[in-house]
Write a protein that binds this DNA or RNA. Structure first.
Lengths: 353, 353
DNA sequence: CCTCAAATAGAAAGCGCTTGCTACGTGGAG
DNA sequence: CTCCACGTAGCAAGCGCTTTCTATTTGAGG
C-alpha cells in the first residue's frame, strides 16, 4: 500500500506526532530529529495524505478561481494573476496552496455546482471573476451560497464582478459603466452620431453596465438611442462578425461600431472589411478590455483598458489575507480609454446630413 | 458548527450509514427513506465533507489539468475541452468531479509542485498539456513522479506533449515536426529561400520539434539552414516583435518569417509593418496553432491548425476512463496546414539573385 | 403457519492525520 | 542538592465519512 505517516515515523524512530510536526513546521522539533524524519520521508517517497490532514486539521489548502470561459484571455489573464499570488512556489514559504481554476462556461448551474464542490472541499478561499448573471433566482442562490461559504471560513473575493450584498464577499469591481461612457464620449467627440452597439449576452451585469455607459454618453449628447442599433450576442468573434453585418443592414450609414469587448470588435472589423469598408475611414470600431492582441490588430483597436493583471493579483492577495480588504469591502477599479487607430473622424459623405 | 452527516441522520431518523448511502447512491435504500434523508439534507443545507469522504473512501473526485500559461488561448482551449468532458454538470450523472486547472507558468519546479499537490489530494486523474521541458534532470524527476502517480491509481494523460516512456502515462502527441515541415514546404514551394525562424523557448520539446520540421524541409530542398536566421524567445507577442526586427537586421533581404506560434507571428507582423514592409508582398509570415484570432489578423495568418478542442476532449474522456487509450498508449495527432493571406510568392526584387 | 431468502437498516471499525495534554530530561536558580 | 521551567517527544482522542458485517423485517413458497 501507500506509505503513511506511521511508516515514516517507524523508519525515523519517532512517533507519528513528531513526523506531522516536522512536516508542518508548526512546533519545535530538535534539529537532529527533524533531519532524521526528513531523511525517512525522502527515502520512502512519502507524500502527505491531503484529505486526511484536511480532515484532521479542519482546513484545506485549496483555493478556487471561477472563470466564465477559460479559453478567453480576459479570464486567463486574471486567473493567472490570482494564481501567481496564491499557489505553488509563487508564494512565500509555508502553506503550499493548490490554486485551481474552474471553468463555468458562463452557466449559472455550473457556477453553483463548482461552488458546492469547493465548499465540499472546504476551500480556503474562492475568487469569482467576470460578470454575474442577473437572473433573480440565480442571484439569490448565489448570494446564499456565498454567504454560507463565508460563514464556514472560506474567504470569498469577487474580481471584476459587482458586489454581492450581505454575503461578506469582498468585491473588486470594474467600472464598466464609466468605461463604456468614456468610450462613446470619445466617439461622439470625433463627430460620430450613428453608432451601432454590439452588446454582450443578455442578463449579464457586464453587458448591462457597459451598455448603460454607452447610453448615458449618448443621452448626455442629446442623442436618443435607437434600439435597432443595439444587438446582443455572446463574447466571441463570430458574434461580432454577424452583428456588424446586421447593423450595416439596419443602418448602412453607420459611422461607428462599439463592441462589447475586443474579441467581438475584431469580428466586427472582419465583417466590415469583408463588406469593403475601411476602418476607420468608413467606419470606426471600438472594443473593451484591451487584451494583448488588440494592440496588434490592423488598425490597432481603440478600447478601454482594464487592469486585469493588477486586479487579479490584488484579489489573490486579499484572498490569501495578505492584503487588507478595501474599505466597505468594495473597491471600484477604473478602466482607461486607449485611443488607437481604429477610431477616427467620420466620413462626411456617410451618415451625416 | 457545520452540519455533519450525523446531524442529517438524526433529523431524518436514520443512521449515518443510511445517509451516506443515499448520498452516494451505491446501495439500495427504500424510496421513503431516501426521501426523508434528502429532505433533511435540504433543510439543513448539508454539504458533504470532501476530505472526510475522500479519506474514508480512499478516492477523490479531483482531476487536475496542468497548463503552461493559462492566459494563452492555446492552453485555455485545451483545458476547457478537457474540463468539459470531466467536470461539473457537463458529465453524466454520478461522480460530480472537480476539474481544476493549474498554471505552471512553464516552470519545471511549479510543474513538479503541482503534481505533488495533486498526488497529495489523491487526484483521480491528471492531464498534462503542452510541451515538456527537456532538461534531463527535470525529465527524470517528472518521469518518476508520473510513474508514482500512476501507481497510486491516478490516471495520467499527456495532451499535446511527447510520450513519457515507462510511466504508464497515455500520450496524445501533436505532430509538431510534421506541421513545421509542411509549413516550410509551403513557403519553399512559393519560392522563398531566405526564411527567418522565430523559435519558442529553448529546451522545450515543442520548440525543438517544430524547428526540426522546418530544418528538414529546408534540407530536403537542398538549403543549408543559416543558424543566424533562427532566434529563440518566449511564446509572446513581444518576442515575435523583437525577433522580427533582429532577423531583419541580420538579413534585410528576408522574404519570409516562420514563427513558433500564432501569437509570436502576430508580433512579428507588427514589427514588419512598423518597418514599412507589406505582408505578404514584401515578407510572408506564418504561425502555428491556428488560434481563433489568427483568422482575423490582417492579412489572415497562414498557420498549422492543431485540433486543440478535439484533442483536449479526447484526453478528458481517456482520463475519465470513458474512452479507451490508443494502442500502445500513444497517439499522434496531426496538424493541418491552413494557407491564408499572410504568405505569398516572394518579391523578385528582394532576397533573390 | 413456518422457513428461508431477499431487502433494508444499523453498529462499529477504521481511513491517515493533527493536536491538546502529559511525560520526560536537563540545566540554571535557589 | 533540589526544584522549576523550558525544550522535546509521545499518547491518544478524535476529525466526518465509508463500508463490512450483522440484525431485522418482509414476503413467498412449502
Amino acid at each position: 500500500m501507500t506509505v503513511t505517516l506511521a511508516d515514516v515515523a517507524a523508519r525515523a524512530q519517532v512517533s507519528p506526532a513528531t513526523v506531522s510536526r516536522v512536516l508542518n513546521g508548526n512546533y519545535p522539533v530538535a534539529a537532529t530529529t527533524r533531519e532524521r524524519v526528513l531523511r525517512a520521508v525522502d527515502e520512502l517517497d512519502y507524500v502527505l495524505n491531503g484529505p486526511a490532514s484536511a480532515l484532521a486539521a479542519a482546513t484545506s489548502d485549496l483555493v478556487g478561481i471561477l472563470v466564465n470561459d477559460i479559453a478567453d484571455p480576459f479570464f486567463g489573464i486574471m486567473a493567472g494573476a490570482v494564481q501567481s499570488e496564491i499557489g505553488g512556489p509563487g508564494g512565500r514559504a509555508g502553506g503550499e496552496r493548490l490554486a485551481v481554476v474552474c471553468n463555468t462556461g458562463g452557466s449559472p448551474e455550473r457556477e453553483l455546482t463548482y461552488l458546492t464542490l469547493l465548499q465540499r472541499q472546504r476551500a480556503a478561499a474562492v475568487v469569482l471573476t467576470g460578470g454575474a448573471v442577473e437572473d433573480p433566482a440565480h442571484a439569490a442562490a448565489m448570494g446564499a451560497k456565498l454567504r454560507r461559504l463565508g460563514e464556514s471560513g472560506t474567504r470569498v473575493v469577487l474580481c471584476g464582478r459587482p458586489p454581492a450584498p450581505d454575503t461578506g464577499a469582498i468585491a473588486l469591481t470594474f467600472d464598466n459603466r464609466g468605461g463604456g461612457l468614456r468610450l462613446t464620449q470619445h466617439l461622439l467627440a470625433l463627430g460620430h452620431r450613428r453608432i451601432g452597439y454590439i452588446a454582450g449576452p443578455e442578463e449579464r451585469t457586464t453587458t448591462r453596465h457597459r451598455l448603460e455607459g454607452h447610453r448615458a454618453a449618448l443621452s448626455a449628447h442629446g442623442i436618443t438611442d435607437d434600439p435597432h442599433l443595439t444587438l446582443h450576442g455572446p463574447y466571441d468573434r463570430r458574434s461580432g462578425y454577424d452583428a456588424a453585418l446586421e447593423l450595416l443592414r439596419r443602418d448602412p450609414d453607420l459611422t461607428a461600431v462599439v463592441a462589447a469587448n475586443d474579441t467581438v470588435a475584431l469580428g466586427a472589423c472582419a465583417a466590415l472589411r469583408d463588406r469593403g469598408l475601411r476602418i476607420p475611414a468608413d467606419v470606426s470600431v471600438a472594443g473593451f478590455d484591451d487584451l494583448p492582441f488588440s494592440m496588434d490588430a490592423v488598425p490597432a483597436l481603440t478600447t478601454v483598458r482594464l487592469p486585469l493583471q493588477t486586479a487579479g493579483a490584488r484579489a489573490g492577495r486579499i484572498a490569501m489575507g495578505r492584503e487588507d480588504a478595501p474599505p466597505g469591502g468594495i473597491a471600484t477599479v477604473q478602466g482607461e480609454l486607449m485611443v488607437r487607430g481604429s477610431t477616427g473622424v467620420p466620413d462626411p459623405g456617410r451618415g451625416g446630413a
